[in-house]
Amino acid sequence: MNLKTINSVRTNNFKDERIMEKITGMWKESTKVLKNKDAVVYGLYYDYESNYKGDYSLSVATEGTGDEASIEIPSDNKYEMFIVDPTDEQGVYKTWKKIWESEEKGTLNRAYTYDFEKYYPNGTIEIYIAIK
């Protein structure tokens, strides 16, 4: 899968005091650029320093190629998919919390390559976690 990045930030879930400001700003700026309201939009997590407690890069992306701002996701990556409750304002955060808890319990063996949130035009949200 090839994803064209729109906007990116580097952050940390636990050490970056400006994490919400960075992520919210990145999404707001990206929506100004996104023309096709019927396109699937991705929140792409990559360039992990270590695990979910370390620094990582996050990009807003769409499917496509053709410029220097595209990232190729290897087709042989294996994923576990989590469905987000779109009616819950905190649904994405709660799903990530569940992912981190699963990892801490040893029931999710993350690869820390490329993870992504997939936002469909109909409101459905899925989170794909790369696994070993």
Score class of each variant (00 low, 15 high):
T87I: 06
G91W: 10
K94W: 02
T107G: 03
I125F: 06
D88W: 08
E103Q: 09
E101V: 11
K78T: 11
Q90F: 11
Y48E: 12
P86T: 10
D88A: 09
G91E: 06
G64F: 07
T65D: 09
D55C: 07
E68N: 13
N122R: 01
T113S: 01
N51R: 12
T107W: 07
K118I: 04
S50T: 14
D47K: 14
W100L: 01
A69T: 14
S75C: 04
P74C: 10
R110C: 13
Y52I: 08
T62N: 00
G91F: 07
E101M: 14
K94F: 09
V60K: 00
D55E: 13
G123S: 03
E126Q: 10
N77K: 06
F116R: 08
I83V: 11
N109E: 14
D85W: 02
A111P: 03
T124I: 07
F82E: 05
S102Q: 15
E89G: 02
S59Q: 07
N51L: 12
T65P: 01
S59P: 06
M81P: 00
T65S: 15
D88Y: 05
S70T: 15
I71E: 01
A69V: 04
F116E: 10
S102M: 15
K94I: 03
T65W: 04
Y114H: 15
F82H: 03
L108G: 01
N109L: 07
T87W: 02
S70P: 02
I73L: 10
K98Q: 15
E49T: 06
P74G: 06
M81F: 02
E68Q: 11
A111T: 08
D67A: 05
D47L: 06
D47W: 03
S59T: 14
